[in-house]
């Protein structure tokens, strides 16, 4: 992006190995929809630019964290003329009830949209308590 900086890095690389400057972007909070039905919670997140294997969903102590590693596209030999979106990682966390079925959480990625389904835990069946007469 910065030609002067690149030139310095290139010439310096000839003597000791100097890492090429890496473009970094701050993590972004993806836009989300959150909804709930009788049996599940649903989180839908816009995460353009990441493949499924770069996405991580963790559930711990009533907290769901969604993170995704985005690799910035290299355009060697091009100048950045206009930039309206960064290519940083995605990160966003949610508070969720503890009454969920952690083992059955599903995630599906299509066209840059991640859909997470979090089934609710089956409620404990009401138990009749027999009261024996004294």
């Amino acid at each position: 992006m910065n030609t002067a900086q690149n030139e310095v890095a290139t010439s310096a690389a000839a003597v000791p190995a100097v890492e090429a400057p890496v473009k970094t972007f701050r993590p972004r909070a993806p836009r989300v929809d959150v909804s709930e039905s009788a049996d599940a919670y649903f989180v839908t997140a816009d995460v353009p630019g990441v493949p499924m294997d770069a996405i991580e969903v963790t559930i711990e102590e009533g907290r769901l964290e969604l993170s995704a590693k985005r690799t910035a596209t290299e355009h060697e030999g091009y100048r950045t003329a206009f930039r309206q979106f960064g290519e940083g990682d995605y990160r966003r966390a949610f508070t969720i009830p503890e009454t969920i079925d952690r083992e059955s959480v599903r995630a599906d990625l299509r066209d840059g949209v991640l859909r997470i389904t979090i089934p609710k835990a089956q409620p404990a069946k009401p138990q009749k308590i027999r009261i024996s007469a004294g």
Binding site: Y78, R79, A81, F85, D111, G112
Partner: peptide, 25 residues
């Protein structure tokens, strides 16, 4: 306004426009 967001990369003989369009087939 301004949807989709775009990045524009240029070279003397070519231009690349990338746009974020999640959820659009």
């Amino acid at each position: 306004p301004g949807f989709p967001p775009v990045n524009v990369y240029t070279r003397e003989d070519q231009v690349i426009v990338s746009a974020e369009l999640p959820g659009v087939p």
